[in-house]
Amino acid sequence: MDVDAVIFELYGLRPADFTRARDAYVAQARREKDSAAAAAIGGLRRPTLAVWAVNLLARTRPDLAEALLRLGTELRRAHRELDGERMRALSHQQHQVIGALSAEAAQLAAGAGERLRETALREVGEIFHGLLVDDEAARRWAAGRLAKPPPVAVGFEGLEPAPGAMPPPVTRPPRPAPVSAPAPAPAPAAPARTAVGRETRGVRRAAAEKRRSRTVAAREDAAEASAALRRTEQRLAEAAAARDRAEGEAADLLEELSAVRQRVEAARRAVRETKQAYRRAEQAHSEARWTAEKAARRFEEPTRSED
């Protein structure tokens, strides 16, 4: 059995049809004594609706899949090279591309009979963002064989800059040449340092230090809030993914329950039919016995009359 072809076929099916088709292939592999194929196919998990939708996009629009792969390559290169200007431009492009791909995936899914609700749409966007960071998962997706969402990506964490990479130098506009001014009129001599001057400079230094402290504290608070927001978003994404997995497992269990109920109902019908056949057989037996006894009596009556 060609396991790769089977996997490609299974991840092109709607999630509702996945489990039944997978189990059928496992049964076929066991009949063919192909234990390796049975184990490989049996270990496949039912994809979430969002994973199926992004696979459908990659299969239907390979041009869009290739565009996302190129964008991911450029983003990772800009991050490694610490090219801030390039990263800002690509980040803007990233939001546009992910929005367009998400809308296209939702439209393709609706055309295939599946409507993506808000949770699934949010997961679709998270998957595309994760694919920009995870090149290996992006390649599986471009082949239409993504089995599960990539890890939730927060920026490009874990992607270290290239050795020796330095951010580009900040260019500043040249300062204008000083304009010559007439020499000031001589002023009356004043003491070089006075008590008032020293006090003024001390107040200014204290105010500047206070402003720096406030700026540092504000930056630390902003960084902490940003990190907390990322952690919250990650927990929400993980919770949404866990809920979708639970929904998928519940759908699998419901399918199995429906199959068991069908088998039970078939067994009950067989029992009823067996009982009906038994009653008919008993009735036929009784009728045959009565007919035999009647025939016997008719045969005995002429014999007694002759005696």
Rank of each mutant, 00 (worst) to 15 (best):
L257K: 07
V196C: 00
A190F: 02
G111Y: 00
R289Q: 15
A65D: 04
A137Q: 12
F128P: 00
L56R: 09
V133T: 12
K148Q: 12
R268W: 05
A183W: 08
V271L: 11
E85S: 08
V216Q: 09
P302L: 07
D252N: 14
P174I: 05
L82S: 02
T73S: 11
L68C: 06
R22Y: 07
S226E: 15
E126S: 03
H79L: 02
D221F: 03
A78H: 02
R20V: 14
A223I: 04
A251I: 04
R261A: 15
S91T: 15
A251V: 04
T215A: 15
A218L: 09
E238P: 00
L121H: 05
S213I: 00
R117V: 04
R175P: 00
A295V: 08
F299K: 12
A284S: 10
E282W: 03
A222K: 13
G43T: 02
T303A: 13
A162R: 14
E32F: 03
E118D: 15
A138D: 06
G84A: 09
P184H: 06
L146F: 03
A27H: 09
Q234W: 00
A143I: 01
D34G: 07
A189Y: 10
V152E: 05
R175S: 13
A5P: 01
A237Q: 03
Q107K: 14
G111A: 12
R201L: 14
R304M: 07
V260N: 05
A288D: 13
V179T: 14
V179D: 01
E233C: 02
E126Y: 03
E300Y: 09
A225W: 01
A185V: 15
E85P: 00
R139C: 01
P150N: 05
A237S: 15
R140S: 14
A207N: 09
P169D: 08
A246I: 01
V264D: 14
V179Y: 02
E233F: 00
V170K: 12
E287D: 15
V260G: 02
R211T: 10
E157Y: 06
A38E: 04
A281H: 14
G72I: 04
A89E: 13
D221L: 12
T48L: 04
L253E: 15
R297C: 02
L236V: 08
D23E: 15
R77A: 13
R59V: 07
V124R: 01
W290L: 09
A142D: 04
A38K: 03
L116I: 08
A277K: 08
